[in-house]
Computed example of a mutant assay.
Amino acid sequence: MGDSSASYIHLVHHLIEKCLLFYMTKEECMEALSKHAKINPVITSTVWKELEKENKDFFEGYSLRREEWKPEMETRERILKLQSESSKGNTDD
């Protein structure tokens, strides 16, 4: 069981790294992994916290970059939401 647990943790770690590429917050990552990969948010949060401990400098810089990118990310989110709403409207015909 230890090997499968390690593999699962490695998978969660990998998926968190993908979330980081999209400048997601821990909460956004927890929500995304829960919704799309059926990963318990507690597991995601625990792995995220361990990554923060191990990579303190990275996460400090990450937080700063998120703040710098915040206006652009908000605009991108609005565009994606509009596109999603538009595509839903097209399938309801």
Rank of each mutant, 00 (worst) to 15 (best):
L51N: 01
T91Y: 02
S63I: 15
K38G: 15
I43C: 12
Y8S: 13
T44H: 02
S86D: 10
L21K: 15
S84P: 02
M30K: 01
K53E: 04
T91A: 06
M1K: 07
L80H: 13
H13T: 10
K88I: 13
V47L: 11
T44Y: 06
T91R: 05
S45I: 12
S7K: 15
E17Q: 07
E77D: 12
E85Y: 04
E52S: 04
N40F: 01
L11G: 05
K70T: 07
D57R: 07
E28C: 05
E17V: 14
N55F: 13
K88C: 01
S34L: 01
F22L: 15
A37K: 07
K81D: 11
I43V: 13
R78F: 01
L15R: 11
L21D: 07
I39A: 12
A6F: 01
R66L: 11
T91L: 14
F22D: 09
I9V: 06
M24L: 14
T46V: 15
A37P: 02
L11F: 11
I9H: 00
F59A: 02
L51F: 08
M73E: 09
E77Y: 06
C29Q: 00
T75I: 10
L64D: 08
L21Q: 12
S87N: 15
S34D: 06
E50I: 14
G61W: 14
K35N: 15
T44R: 04
C19M: 09
F58V: 12
I39C: 10
W69V: 09
K56Y: 14
E68L: 07
S87L: 11
T91M: 02
R66Q: 08
I39S: 04
E27H: 07
R78W: 00
K26Y: 03
S84M: 10
S87I: 14
L11S: 06
Y8D: 15
S34C: 09
E54W: 13
K88W: 05
A6H: 03
K53P: 00
E52V: 15
K35G: 14
D57T: 09
Q83A: 04
E72L: 08
A32R: 02
T25Q: 00
W48A: 10
D57P: 04
Q83L: 05
K18R: 12
A6D: 03
K70Q: 06
W69D: 07
V12E: 01
K49Q: 10
R66K: 08
N55E: 05
I16M: 12
E31M: 00
V42R: 13
P71T: 02
E31D: 05
E27Q: 03
H14Q: 07
M30W: 00
K81H: 13
L15A: 06
E77H: 11
G61A: 14
G61N: 12
K38P: 06
W69C: 07
Y8E: 10
L82C: 10
L33D: 02
I43M: 05
R66Y: 01
L15Y: 06
T75V: 09
Y62C: 09
K38F: 03
W48C: 14
W69S: 11
K81M: 06
D92K: 02
K18V: 12
S86P: 03
G89H: 15
E77S: 08
V42P: 07
S84C: 06
L64P: 02
V12Q: 01
M24N: 00
M1F: 08
V42E: 12
D57V: 15
H13L: 05
E50L: 13
C19L: 13
M24K: 01
